[in-house]
Nucleic acid binder design. Sequence first.
DNA 1: GTCTATATACCGATAGAC
DNA 2: GTCTATCGGTATATAGAC
Lengths: 229, 229
Amino acid sequence: MTFEEFRQMATISMEEICSEIFAENQASIKIKKEAVAVKNLANIFNTALRLSNEKGFQSMSLRDLSRASGLSMGALYSYFTSKEELLEMIQNQGRRLTRTVLTRQIDVNAEPDVMLRTAIRTHLYLTEIMQKWFYFSYMETKNLDKPQQKKSIDSELETEQVFIDILDAGSRKKVFHVENSVLAASVIKSMLQDWYVKRWKYARRQVSVEEYAEFVIGFIESALQINRA
Amino acid sequence: MTFEEFRQMATISMEEICSEIFAENQASIKIKKEAVAVKNLANIFNTALRLSNEKGFQSMSLRDLSRASGLSMGALYSYFTSKEELLEMIQNQGRRLTRTVLTRQIDVNAEPDVMLRTAIRTHLYLTEIMQKWFYFSYMETKNLDKPQQKKSIDSELETEQVFIDILDAGSRKKVFHVENSVLAASVIKSMLQDWYVKRWKYARRQVSVEEYAEFVIGFIESALQINRA
DNA sequence: GTCTATATACCGATAGAC
DNA sequence: GTCTATCGGTATATAGAC
C-alpha cells in the first residue's frame, strides 16, 4: 500500500477527531453548538500542538495559546476546565487513534512476513499523518500525572506486543530467525518512533515516509534472515 | 570489553565533571574556592537532573531545586546567572563528554566490523553511566534557544557520522552489505538512544546493558549480513 | 559564601459585562 | 458564546544582612 492510498483510506480529518473529542468531553465543554465547538477545538488543538512542539507544553502559557489561536482566555476555558485537562484530552485522543487504526489495518490471518510489513507501514504512515500528535505524546508523557502516565506506558507496551506476537508467529512457522522477540520488537519500535521524533532530520535529508518504510522493512527482514539460505 | 571494565577505564566521576564546569564558567560562578564550588555544583546538577527527569526542566521551579538540594535561592544564583544558563551548562557538559569518550574509544585503524562493535558498546556503556544526563539532553533540547539547539543538532549528526563512516568503510571492504549508510546509521542510532530514553522498560524486564549490547550487535550484524554466504 | 526578604512579572483561573 | 478585567498565587531574580 502506498502512503497516498493509506491517507485516503484512513480519512483522518482534524474535524472528525474534534467531533469525537466534543462528544467525549461534554462535561467539561461549556459550548453546546457542535459546529462552533468543533471549529474552535480544531483551532485550539492545532495551535496547542504547534506551540508545545516548539517549546514544550509547560512553557506554553495559556496566554500564548490565546494569542496564537485568536481566542480569549475566557473562551479557551469554555473548552476545558484546566490546562492539565487540555493535556489529557490531547493525549487520550492520540492513543485512541493509534489503537483504532493499527488494529483495523492488520489482518490477523495473513502470513507473519506480510503482517510484519503491514504493521511497519501502517505505523509509519499513521505517525506521518499525525506527526505533531505523536511527537507531543512522546515528549509530554512524563509531565502527566501518575494515572495518565500509566495509560501511556500501557499504550506503548500494547503497540509493542503487536510486534512481539508477529515475531513469535513467524518464529514458530520458521519464517523468521528470532532469538529474542521482546528485544527485537523493542528495537523495531525504536526505529518507527525515530521517524516522528527526528522528523527534522529526515525532512532535511529529503527522505519520504515511503523511502523510510522500504528501508526499515529491508533492514529488519535482513536482520530476521527472511528468504535466505 | 565488559561494562565493568569500561566503567573503571572511563573514570567519569561527577566531581571531575563539575571541576571542568567550574573552570569553564568562572564568569558566571561567583564562588571562588574550588572545593566549595565543586561540591555544590555536583549537588545542584544531580538534583536538577533528578527533578527535571521526573517532571521536566520547565516544571521544576528553582524553589523546588532549592528545597531538594538544601541550598537557598541566593546560594543557587551564585552558581548561574539564570535558569536558562543552568540548562545550557548541563547540556554543554553532556555534549563534551560524549565527544571525548566516543572518539577516545574508537581505534580508527581497526577493521570495520570491530569498529562497529566497539562503537555500539561504547555508546551504550557511556549512556548507561550517564543515563540521567543523556535523558535530560534528549528531552530538553527543544527548550533551548536557537544557537544552543543548533549545537545539539550538530552533536547528534556528528555522532551519527561516526557510524556512517564505519558503515562506508565496511561497505568498501565488502565486510558489510550496506545499501544506504545514512539511513542505516540513523536506525542504529535510534536503537542506541532507546536504551536511555526507555530505561524504565528495560529495567522492568531486567535486561542489563551488556545483554542489550549483545542483542543489538547481533541484530545489526545480521541486518548487515556479516559472515554469511 | 550563604542566608532571608522582597521586587517585579506573569501564571492559571474566574467573574461578570455584553 | 465571547470578551475584558482582575483575583490570588507563584515564578525568576536580586538586595542586603550576617
